[in-house]
Computed example of a mutant assay.
Amino acid sequence: MPRQALSNLRHWLRENRGFIVFLLCFGLLRTAVADWNPVPTGSMRPTILEGDVVLVNRTAYDLKPPLSTRSLLRTGEPQRGDVVVFFSPVDGTRLIKRLVALPGDVVELDEGQRRLRINGEAALYSDAQGVLEPIGPALAVGASRPLEQLAGHSRRVQLLEGLRSAQHANAVNRRPAGFGPLCVPEGHYFMLGDNRDNSGDSRVFGPVPRHLLVGRAHHVLVSADITAAWWTPRWERWGRALQ
């Protein structure tokens, strides 16, 4: 490197060392402590919408070196009902789903009624809300959003009732509605999307090993309707806690 260029570089580094330290600390914070995760799909509707950016606590379960899945220290235990960011055990894709079953749990989802069971206890469903759910360009189906209560936790889930016709079922990447009973292996966790009829989850790729968990998502940071022409902000979702 020419002497003048090297001198200019050293001068630039001296003048901007505070900003450089800030960027390094910011990068360390995001890769090891806290993170945000843009959500491009509707597999967690109605809890999380396409265009939500969620905050993720990367130290909720384990302390890991930046850019690594190796745990240095366990900091907490995953709980049923947590919204978890993790890497797919099949292809490493970063996903966000609901943790519904812990190691040793026997989990089952009835094909007909789509009722979730954990260790023989059936979830209770109430206060169902009827909506018209978009599943593609100029295509929508009727959906039901009941309150699912099980194992001390409750959340809204979505059932795409209108997918019972073959025409509509072929319009989305539909996943099997039922599974189990299955005993979750030691050190693994069973994940489901809240949008039960349109989610690629543990019904497809199986239980997720702990080392692939990134962290627990707890709030929506910002949100915009990415299906709209101008990505309209959803102000009412900014800062919303995830249930």
Rank of each mutant, 00 (worst) to 15 (best):
123 A>L: 06
117 R>Y: 09
146 P>N: 08
58 R>C: 03
20 I>R: 12
161 E>D: 13
52 D>G: 02
2 P>H: 09
149 Q>C: 05
214 V>F: 07
227 T>W: 13
32 A>F: 12
108 E>M: 05
241 A>C: 05
108 E>S: 04
60 A>I: 06
28 L>S: 09
177 A>I: 04
55 L>M: 11
14 R>G: 04
204 V>G: 06
98 R>I: 03
157 V>F: 09
130 G>L: 15
186 E>F: 00
105 D>A: 08
153 H>L: 10
1 M>G: 08
152 G>R: 03
160 L>N: 05
49 L>H: 13
123 A>E: 01
136 G>A: 13
232 T>C: 04
168 H>T: 03
205 F>A: 12
142 G>T: 03
191 M>W: 07
232 T>Y: 14
195 N>H: 04
193 G>D: 03
102 L>W: 01
99 L>R: 09
168 H>A: 14
183 C>K: 15
62 D>I: 01
105 D>W: 03
72 L>D: 00
120 G>I: 01
31 T>I: 06
202 S>K: 14
193 G>P: 00
241 A>V: 01
231 W>L: 15
233 P>D: 14
118 I>S: 05
127 D>Q: 13
216 R>Q: 11
185 P>S: 08
222 V>C: 11
13 L>R: 10
236 E>P: 00
214 V>Y: 08
29 L>T: 02
193 G>S: 03
138 A>W: 04
243 Q>K: 09
195 N>M: 08
122 A>E: 05
118 I>V: 10
32 A>G: 10
18 G>V: 08
9 L>S: 02
112 G>H: 10
44 M>I: 06
231 W>N: 12
97 K>T: 08
124 L>Q: 12
83 V>W: 15
51 G>P: 11
116 L>T: 01
40 P>V: 06
205 F>R: 12
191 M>E: 06
73 L>F: 08
238 W>R: 09
162 G>H: 02
82 D>Q: 07
115 R>T: 12
125 Y>C: 04
150 L>M: 06
150 L>G: 00
242 L>T: 05
73 L>E: 00
166 A>E: 12
214 V>A: 15
176 P>G: 03
90 V>Y: 07
89 P>H: 11
84 V>A: 10
73 L>R: 05
119 N>G: 00
200 G>R: 13
243 Q>E: 15
7 S>M: 11
45 R>L: 15
9 L>E: 01
193 G>T: 04
44 M>T: 07
74 R>D: 10
86 F>M: 11
133 E>T: 07
158 Q>N: 03
16 N>C: 01
23 L>F: 02
109 L>V: 10
124 L>K: 07
230 W>E: 15
178 G>R: 15
162 G>Y: 07
151 A>L: 01
95 L>A: 08
231 W>F: 10
178 G>W: 15
127 D>W: 02
171 A>W: 13
175 R>L: 02
98 R>G: 01
220 V>I: 13
140 A>L: 09
229 A>S: 12
6 L>S: 13
183 C>H: 09
182 L>E: 14
176 P>D: 02
231 W>E: 12
192 L>G: 12
121 E>G: 00
242 L>G: 06
124 L>F: 03
186 E>R: 11
205 F>C: 10
198 N>C: 02
103 P>N: 06
59 T>D: 00
169 A>D: 06
57 N>D: 14
156 R>G: 00
22 F>T: 12
203 R>F: 09
174 R>T: 04
65 P>V: 04
